[in-house]
Structures are given as C-alpha cells and as structure tokens.
Amino acid sequence: MIVAGRSGGEGVRLVLESEEAMLLSELADQVDSVLLLGEADDPALGRLLPNAYPDDMSASHEFARYTRDSLVDGKRQAAQRVRDATAVESAGDGVVQIELDQSEAWGWLTFLTDLRLILAERVGIIEEGEDTADETRDDYLRAAYEWAGFVQGSMLEVLDPTDS
C-alpha cells in the first residue's frame, strides 16, 4: 500500500494491491455488521459507543437514547464508504487507486479507528504494551490491527505533517 499526498490539492491518495483492497473491504463489511447487529453484550460496542456518564445510570441512558442512532449511522456510513471504495471483483486485478479529499479522509480515519477498537477487543488488547492475547486464535486479527494502525498513521503523516 502507498499513502501519498494528492497532486495539487489537500487530501490523500491511496494505492492498494487488490489483495489489500479485498481485505479492507471485508474488514469494513465486518465493522458495518457489528454496528448493524448491535448486540448489547458485545464488548466491542462498548468501545465504539462508550458510556458518557459512568456514575449516573439515568443520565447515561438518556445520552445513549439521544445520540446512539446518529453515532451508529455515522460509523456505518464511514464503514460502507470504505467497503465500497475498496470493492474489487477478484484478486490479481492489479492496483486500486483511491483519492480522498479532507472530509473523505476523515471518514477513513474514523473508520480505521472503529476497526482497531473492534479488533483490539477481539484480541484482548486491554493495557498498552501488555500482551494477553491468545496467539493461536488471533494472529490474523492482530496483523489486521497492526496494519490498520500503519495505514492510519501514514494517512496522518500526509494530512498533518509535523515538521512543517
């Protein structure tokens, strides 16, 4: 994957191998499913939709009642846009090029965050640097987690260069 600036404009240009595009499309579809199914006992949802009032149950319910639908909608839309932008017919089709303006790039950044929050929950990343994961089960998910972080970090370096 190549992450670069856009010639003559703000935003970011992504070049993905078709295998990478397929993987990302699949992961985006899974994020959408987690949000669509919204199973109350799924701890990943607690990371995507945190409790705004941990010490006040009734305020917490009120907040969730007023915000949850639009938060879920926004997150699902971001995931669906990534899924659609990376949809390829089959592997081996060469590369997929994607141009994102500033606002589209934000959709990708927030999607990558949600993806990493879900993957972190699945592989048991609880404390920074602490490895409590079941490695046999989670190698694939952990690799996807690291990769999504790499993509997000690369996008941020383009969108927000620190040495300027």
């Binding site: 995507l48 945190p50 409790n51 705004a52 907040f63 639009s70 926004g74 965050t113």
Partner: peptide, 18 residues
C-alpha cells in the same frame, strides 16, 4: 459538553461528561 462527548465518540475516543 454532551455535544462534544458525542463528537468524541464519533471519532472513536473514550469521553465522558462530568
């Protein structure tokens, strides 16, 4: 503050109102 926290949740940050 509730608007801010909702926005933070949209960005995937863990935020609370207090």
């Amino acid at each position: 503050m509730e608007r801010h926290v909702e926005a933070m949740h949209g960005y995937g940050l863990q935020a609370t109102v207090s």
